[in-house]
């Protein structure tokens, strides 16, 4: 099977994630969409590793996973902190940067 198909699905998933980030308001869902985008990128890396016949792509995907884990931990902590002070998990409510 042609590995390029994986790239197509990766692009589709990435696009869906991007739409989700813009469209959804719940911070947690937004976060999940970001995870989806990261995963889509990972799929591309793994596919590239296969196409090129070496494991470097997989190593990069591995690092991406670790960084994503860090990001989730810190991001969710931020969401909890914001929720604690604002009683809201909506990203639109944290719009004070304008003023």
């Amino acid at each position: 099977m042609n590995p390029t198909n994986y790239l197509y699905i990766s692009a589709l998933l990435f696009t869906i994630g991007a739409i989700g980030v813009v469209v959804r308001r719940n911070a947690i869902v937004v976060f999940m969409c970001i995870e989806l985008m990261l995963n889509a990128a990972n799929l591309s890396f793994v596919t590239f590793a296969r196409i090129n016949g070496n494991l470097d792509g997989q190593v990069v995907a591995f690092f991406t996973m670790v960084v994503a884990a860090c990001e989730v931990v810190v991001g969710l902590a931020i969401i909890v902190t914001i929720y604690r002070s604002r009683r809201s998990a909506s990203v639109d409510d944290a719009s004070l940067l304008k003023r």
Partner: peptide, 26 residues
């Protein structure tokens, strides 16, 4: 898909770290 593409380790890690730990965190 990872496992199918010869990335056995990443496939396992994907399940353990993402579906297991990260999604639990969510």
């Amino acid at each position: 898909f990872y496992i199918a593409q010869g990335a056995l380790f990443l496939g396992i890690v994907q399940v353990v770290v993402y579906t297991g730990a990260v999604m639990m965190l969510f």
